[in-house]
Design a protein around this nucleic acid. Sequence first.
DNA 1: AGCTGTTATGTTTACGTAAACATCTGGTGG
DNA 2: CCACCAGATGTTTACGTAAACATAACAGCT
Lengths: 379, 379
Amino acid sequence: MDSAERAPASLPGPAVERAGTTGDPAGGASKRTGDRARRGVRTTASMADVARLAGVSSQTVSRVSNGYAGVHEETRRQVLAAMKELGYRPNSAARALKRGEFRTIGVITFTLATTGNVRTLEAIATSAAREGYAVTLLPVAVPTQDEVRGAFSRLEELAVDAVIVIMEVHLLDAVTITLPPHVQVVVVDSDAGDHYTVVDTDQAGGTRAAVQHLLDLGHRTVWHLGGPADSFAAQRRTDAWRAALTEAGRVPPPLIRGDWSAESGYRAGLELAAREDCTAVFAANDQMALGLLRALHERGRRVPEDVSVIGFDDIPEASSFLPPLTTVHQDFAEVGRLCVEAVLRKMRQEGPERGTTLVPTRLVLRESTAPPGRDPKRP
Amino acid sequence: MDSAERAPASLPGPAVERAGTTGDPAGGASKRTGDRARRGVRTTASMADVARLAGVSSQTVSRVSNGYAGVHEETRRQVLAAMKELGYRPNSAARALKRGEFRTIGVITFTLATTGNVRTLEAIATSAAREGYAVTLLPVAVPTQDEVRGAFSRLEELAVDAVIVIMEVHLLDAVTITLPPHVQVVVVDSDAGDHYTVVDTDQAGGTRAAVQHLLDLGHRTVWHLGGPADSFAAQRRTDAWRAALTEAGRVPPPLIRGDWSAESGYRAGLELAAREDCTAVFAANDQMALGLLRALHERGRRVPEDVSVIGFDDIPEASSFLPPLTTVHQDFAEVGRLCVEAVLRKMRQEGPERGTTLVPTRLVLRESTAPPGRDPKRP
DNA sequence: AGCTGTTATGTTTACGTAAACATCTGGTGG
DNA sequence: CCACCAGATGTTTACGTAAACATAACAGCT
């Protein structure tokens, strides 16, 4: 309880007063000195131990451990043997302290409920591992400024060299962030390319492909089931949808907004099903498209005969929807990979400080789209 | 001494003033020694800096930083002011080195493609943050022994105090794991409760509820679309399904196996749709149930009139399936929370070394189940 | 032989923090 | 009035690693 009370060392926190004893019930049975011996934690072997056993200096152990050339083969073998015998593991805290870097990337993201975030995170973790970096996860439960601020203040005292932010970054600007000065930031899902390094899916390109596909099929116009207003990705898709229609000389119907969830797609679908003039819908993600399909089905509007539906993301389940969903495929793996690449480049001061990288999309044709007015009753 | 060079905390300074060659200013103009000065990384303020500015010893700064009592209020204020002015952040590497702990939990998991893993991970991260711990993610791309070994060897030199393993642990036993001796392990999805501390969903309870529900509706027996053989969760669900049927005096039909994906559910569904005697199916997860629904629909078998379907997980989309899916709700958040709790308790040596904790499930009734043979044409 | 350069290894030092121990106040009670 | 105590603060030291510098051994060359 004592140790739990010891507030997690947060700087801004006015420092919880430590009541009572220091935590150790006076039983001074510890003859061992050393900090951690008292907690009963078995200390692991250090370089000095290995050096002693191998009969060399600890510096030579360090050289072997870091793979430097210039160590006699014989010596190296002895050192390696000693390491193995003692089960030596380099202490990463000491390494980080000495080297001034943690080899860790922090990832800040909202809820992991959306496929996109998760897939990107996974790709980031994989790419980072390949580069010898670990990934520390910082979930932000609710997208309020307070929560974001909280995540960042946790981050400030965290052992990271760089941060990747998977969310609309305007929330950040509103917050006064004070990151350790050398920490690099890369952002997904934002238009802040002039302030940050941004990697993102080509939302506009994907959207245009989707809209164009529907227009090519002969639909007069395309309705849009958009994502929440605070998502930049959603905003971009909505903008691109409008632009694509306008450029094609069509009148964009009123925007209908969901919140990414299938449930919101269902509600929107009930609305749309009531409109006879709605023959094509572009949903801003697959989940909402799923709800939309259900609503249309319930109201007796057939897909794709009466209404064409197209989604965004290409989640694995999309091919199992009823009917299988035509959708815009996002390459999350590539986004994650590029994020890591960008952030490492920034750390090495090899890359530009800012700018946006777009990852192309691909339209996946399945069975939820068809020419309009194809009524099997009047073939 | 060199405090003049430590720039007085102009916070948003990008600080790439070191022009010219990247790392080797040949005219050794740098009077500073020190490792990281040479890499052009601006050193952040240390305790010593704060102490100097506040006119106290660094130990007093440490006391303030860690919230110890016994610091005069006046002094504390001064120290806090100095910290703020310099933008001081405790160096977590030094802390970790000194304290012998990292305040970090490592999470090893297979692909983040399954909802369960992701939701559990998210809950772990949230709970850990609440306790002042960070979470480091270690994805294992493919469930081969080599991959697992790789993840663990990365882990060995990683800065973690504890590990939570989200996968069947038998893969681990086959691998020779050599973790730092004091690292605690908690496992999800395993029956290794006699070797490890295990937290898991009550697979058996949930399965029994599902099977019983179908039997109560009047179905003669229940078919099962199981998960992959290497998943313990899948195994448990399959075992419980057999047991529940047997106890009720029914004959378990042959097992059909999928791989968790909707696609595999679809393939299985095509098979099941061909069998007139199949009136009820229990799918081991919701994704497979989705594929199953599609196959049944394609083959003209109505759900729930001709076939009842029940899933497992209760993913958010389940309520938007066609029809909305009756399924077993898993409380992933609770699983994650308990994992963190267990692992922290182990670290503090307050809890048992091994044993299994089960988290109860809840059957969510929607519209994919009904009594058999209910033909709406003959009400 | 004497010099030079190369290779292999050892020694010193510093990274930032916090425990352990030491010192210095001012007040209290005998 | 002094011994004593407790609270407030300072000093020393060690955590494990790796850069920087130092040394030693030896081969090649004039």
